[in-house]
């Protein structure tokens, strides 16, 4: 039983899923339309972009860094992809060039943080500004519109009945990454770097390489999110992806990726992103005016994260107390046992 409870609280993913279920059932009770299959799929579809951002962000936060440039990488990628689409470039070259935006931005971030020792919040804040500015220069401050239909329709395509193709592929990718991070030999390296930098160095992990890789992955996923944005929204305005970095960070934290590094999973980050997105839709269904959105999602974020922290701290403390108490309680005839134990061990 104790094992179960511990396991349960340690696996933050489970807490998040339960919260997600409670959110959906409560809102569903108030307005059944919210839990209709159509709306659920719609909510998931709307989450895809944030899930992509949150997965990339999870890598960076696991290594105890932060990346606040993903919003601008998303915007820049979206602008590049949309412009190429409008100019009639081939799909393959569009994808390659767009991903390059993320890779290069991530490399710049990673090298700045590891080689030039710039704190990641400062470094990525810088690239965030640079990229947002470059995007203005690139688009001339104009919206990129009149995109070919095939790209816009891609986000509406369904496979396996009602399953949206983007949602499907997002989950496949997420599961592959999750398995890699938890099962593969190198999978734990990201968490190790964030958990204890010097310790990771000592067991032969190339810590700088892992950090750069995390930033590159974060950039790549922001670029993917940019393409998703183009496909789902159908045009690219100047504010595309503005503030998305905060949603991505909040999704990670909500999903149990610790800002102290070393703890968390992309699974949690994904559910975190779904919650962040669902809250907005849920408020619509509850007929709460839209300008409450940020306030309420901010409040919920604090409530969920702090209650979770309180519960796990309580459990850790009581486990320690129990271990210590057992020791003093065993004093009666414990003496003999101890001596016997020693002899046994010598044999």
């Amino acid at each position: 039983m104790k094992f179960f409870v511990n396991r349960f609280v340690k696996n933050r993913e489970v807490t998040v899923v339960i919260f997600l279920l409670i959110l959906f059932s409560l809102v569903g009770l108030k307005n059944p339309a919210f839990v209709s299959p159509g709306n659920l799929m719609l909510t998931l579809k709307g989450s895809v972009m944030y899930i992509a951002l949150a997965i990339g962000m999870a890598f960076v936060i696991l290594t105890k860094e932060i990346d606040v440039s993903v919003g601008s990488i998303l915007g820049m990628s979206a602008a590049v992809a949309a412009t190429m689409l409008r100019n009639g470039s081939g799909l393959f070259s569009i994808i390659v060039v767009t991903l390059m935006v993320g890779i290069v931005s991530g490399l710049v971030n990673g090298i700045g943080v590891t080689k030039f020792k710039i704190p990641s919040i400062v470094m990525t804040l810088g690239t965030n500004g640079i990229l947002r500015g470059l995007m203005f220069i690139y688009t001339g401050g104009k919206w990129v519109e009149n995109l070919p239909d095939y790209f816009k329709q891609a986000s509406q395509k369904s496979i396996f009945g009602n399953m949206n193709s983007f949602v499907f592929f997002t989950f496949i990718i997420m599961i592959i990454i999750h398995l890699y991070l938890t099962k593969a030999r190198n999978g734990k390296y990201f968490a190790a770097v964030g958990d204890n930098l010097e310790g990771a160095n000592l067991v032969g992990i190339k810590v700088n390489f892992m950090k750069i890789l995390a930033f590159v992955l974060s950039g790549v996923f922001a670029s993917i999110a940019g393409m998703v944005y183009v496909s789902q929204v159908g045009f690219v305005g100047n504010v595309a992806g503005n503030g998305a970095e905060m949603t991505a960070i909040a999704s990670c934290v909500l999903g149990g990726v610790s800002l102290n590094g070393g703890v968390g999973s992309v699974l949690g980050a994904t559910f975190g992103a779904i919650i962040m997105n669902s809250i907005n839709t849920a408020l619509v269904f509850l007929k709460v005016p839209a300008y409450w959105n940020n306030t309420i999602s901010g409040l919920l974020l604090i409530v969920i994260v702090s209650s979770d922290a309180l519960i796990s701290r309580y459990l850790v403390n009581s486990a320690i107390k129990q271990r210590l108490s057992v020791k003093t309680e065993s004093n009666g005839d414990g003496k003999k046992e101890e001596i016997g134990g020693e002899i046994n061990e010598q044999i």
Binding site: K188, N196, V203, V263
Partner: peptide, 22 residues
């Protein structure tokens, strides 16, 4: 090198701590 001040990964299990990188 077994350092004087232990350098383990606090959030990993004993098993993960020993086997990491092997």
């Amino acid at each position: 090198y077994v350092p004087q001040e232990p350098m383990l990964f606090p959030n990993m299990t004993v098993e993960e701590n020993v086997l990491i990188g092997m």
